[in-house]
C-alpha cells in the first residue's frame, strides 16, 4: 500500500465493538428477572406441577363437545348483537366527538373538554367499565353494549380527530368561499377527505368490539363470555374448548370479511 502512495485509513469504527448501552440494558433485564422471580414468589416446582395439570386439562378439552350447540349459538348471537349495536352507536357518537376534538376546526374551548372526555373513556379497560355498568344497569346485554360504546368512543374518536387534523385546509377554504354553511363545509370538504380512513378505523373498531364482546360476559355483561365463564366454573372443559374454537373461527371469519370491506372502500 505504502509504495502506491495510499495510506490506509486507520481510524474507522470497529463494527463489532462492545456497545455498553446494550450490554447494560441486558444486565438490567437479567437483574429485573431475578428480582421479580424473587418478589413474586415464582418457583420452578409450581411451574412443573402446573405443566402436569396442563396435560390433564388438555386431555379433558379434547375432543371438543359441541352437543350443547344451542347454548353456544345463543351466546354467539348475543355477542354479535352487542358488537354490532355498540359499534354503530359508538361510531355515530365518535363522529361528533372526533369533529369536536379536531383542533384545526374547533376552538380550544370545545376541544379541551372533549379531548379530556375521550381520554377518560380510553384509560379504563373495558372490563372495569363493564363492572361499573353491570352494577348500575344489571346483568345482561345492555351493560355490554354501554361498555363497548364507551370503549369505541375512547378509541376511534381519537383516531377520527387525528385524521381530521391531517386534512388539507385548502378545500375547506374553497367550500367556505362559496358561502356554504357549517354543515355543508363539514359534509363536502372535510368528510370526503377522511371517509376512507374512517371506514378503516370503523372496521377495526368492529373487529375489536367483536373480540371484546366475547369477554365482557365474564363479569356478567352478556354474550359468549358468560357461557364460557360458567363452563369454566363447572369444569366443562370440553365445552370450553368448543367455545374457544367458535371464538377463533368467528374472529378469522370476521378478519376475512373486513378485508373484503376494506378492499371495496380503498379505491
Amino acid at each position: 500500500m505504502a509504495e502506491l502512495g495510499v495510506t490506509p485509513v486507520k481510524d474507522y469504527k470497529n463494527p463489532f465493538s462492545i456497545n455498553w448501552l446494550t450490554s447494560g440494558l441486558w444486565i438490567l433485564v437479567a437483574g429485573y428477572l431475578l428480582y421479580t422471580v424473587q418478589s413474586l414468589g415464582l418457583s420452578w416446582t409450581r411451574f412443573s406441577e402446573g405443566l402436569h395439570h396442563a396435560g390433564t386439562l388438555l386431555d379433558r378439552m379434547f375432543p371438543p363437545n359441541f352437543s350443547r350447540w344451542e347454548l353456544l349459538f345463543s351466546g354467539l348471537a348475543e355477542s354479535l348483537e352487542i358488537a354490532v349495536i355498540s359499534s354503530v352507536v359508538g361510531i355515530f357518537f365518535s363522529l361528533f366527538f372526533g369533529l369536536f376534538a379536531a383542533r384545526n376546526l374547533m376552538s380550544n374551548l370545545v376541544t379541551v373538554p372533549v379531548r379530556g372526555f375521550i381520554a377518560v373513556c380510553r384509560s379504563f379497560h373495558p372490563i372495569i367499565v363493564a363492572i361499573l355498568f353491570v352494577k348500575s344497569v344489571g346483568f345482561g346485554a345492555l351493560a355490554g353494549i354501554l361498555t363497548l360504546i364507551i370503549a369505541s368512543i375512547g378509541f376511534i374518536a381519537k383516531l377520527f380527530a387525528e385524521a381530521i387534523e391531517e386534512i388539507s385546509l385548502k378545500q375547506v377554504e374553497a367550500i367556505r368561499a362559496t358561502g356554504a354553511s357549517f354543515t355543508s363545509v363539514i359534509l363536502f370538504s372535510v368528510l370526503p377527505q377522511v371517509f376512507s380512513r374512517f371506514i378503516g378505523f370503523s372496521t377495526y373498531q368492529l373487529d375489536s368490539n367483536l373480540r371484546n364482546s366475547t369477554m365482557v360476559g365474564i363479569v356478567g355483561a352478556g354474550g359468549l363470555g358468560g357461557t364460557l365463564f360458567s363452563a369454566f366454573q363447572r369444569f366443562d372443559y370440553d365445552f370450553v374448548s368448543a367455545i374457544l374454537i367458535t371464538i377463533i373461527a368467528l374472529i378469522l371469519f370476521w378478519e376475512f370479511l373486513s378485508n373484503v370491506v376494506r378492499s371495496i372502500f380503498s379505491e
Binding site: 415464582l42 402446573g50 395439570h53 365474564i218 371464538i247 377463533i248 378469522l252
Partner: peptide
C-alpha cells in the same frame, strides 16, 4: 383471538390462582 382474560381463566385452571 383469545382475550387476555380468557387466557387468564385457562392459566388459572392450570397453575391455580396467582401471579404465574
Amino acid at each position: 383471538s383469545i382475550n387476555s382474560l380468557i387466557w387468564a381463566l385457562l392459566f388459572v385452571a392450570i397453575f391455580g390462582p396467582g401471579v404465574i
